[in-house]
């Protein structure tokens, strides 16, 4: 089964004069454990693609399937609890960490677990474990304002990983970081893809950051113009793509 499958995905903003085709007829599949880069210039539709897959941007046409569940077919499928799919199967990482400013690092991770039905104690245990794994055990009680950019981004990654999502969507996760921290984050995402068997889709416009990715999609004016492979992962063949 694919972790992510999109078919003929199209997103049109506005109508008439102001009509913008942000994504045009995009199709691809991603298997669990695959690390995907989406490259492209500003305004090419990368974020639109990611948010459509992330179930926060309703596609105009085409299908979105997450973990085998059809969620959009020319618009959202009626009766689907998109929030539930988001909290159970998706993890989000953004350019700016988007941590909740009035929660500590630990609480920011815990909140993702608690809204997914974990008890407070279980959430705390898992959050501490994640922070430790991301080398953050020293400041679990710091507020985001008291964390460095790299630390904050790692807390955001911990939050995204909290519910062991099938798919991780990262929009320019390194843009606000220096090269060193940026490389670290990318290395972590790669590790997550391999260890957690999550499909990881990373939007970036920095070519240098995509070293070691499994596949790279290049987007221009809403179209996927090029797909290049890094090295083939076993899963791709096994899924029978």
């Amino acid at each position: 089964m694919f972790a992510v499958e999109i078919a003929h995905l199209t997103k049109v903003y506005g109508q008439g004069e102001t009509k913008v085709v942000a994504i045009a007829d995009a199709s691809f599949q991603v298997v669990p454990g695959e690390l995907i880069a989406i490259l492209g210039p500003s305004g090419s539709g990368k974020t639109t693609l990611l948010t459509s897959i992330g179930l926060i941007n309703e596609p105009s046409q085409g299908q979105v399937v997450i973990d085998g569940q059809l969620l959009a077919d020319d618009g959202w499928l009626p009766g689907v609890d998109l929030k539930r799919v988001r909290r159970e199967k998706l993890g989000f990482i953004f350019q700016h960490h988007n941590l909740i400013p009035f929660l500590t690092a630990l609480e920011n991770v815990m909140v993702a677990l608690e809204i997914n039905g974990h008890s407070r104690a279980a959430a705390k245990a898992r959050a501490l474990e994640l922070l430790a794994a991301l080398n953050l055990s020293r400041r679990p009680h710091n507020y985001p304002a008291a964390l460095s950019g790299g630390e904050a981004q790692r807390v955001a990654i911990a939050r995204a990983l909290a519910n062991r999502p099938k798919v991780i969507l990262a929009d320019e996760p390194t843009a606000a970081l220096d090269t060193e921290n940026g490389k670290n984050v990318m290395a972590m995402l790669k590790q997550i893809a391999v260890e957690n068997r999550s499909a990881v889709l990373v939007v970036t416009h920095d070519q240098r950051m995509v070293e070691g990715f499994d596949r790279i999609f290049e987007v221009r004016d809403g179209r996927i113009v090029k797909e290049s492979k890094g090295w083939k992962v076993e899963g791709l063949a096994a899924a029978g793509a």
Partner: peptide, 16 residues
């Protein structure tokens, strides 16, 4: 607003 948007994004129920 941003906090609320983030909560919604990570799948918070409206009741939260």
């Amino acid at each position: 607003i941003r906090v609320i948007a983030t909560l919604k994004l990570i799948g918070s129920q409206n009741r939260v």
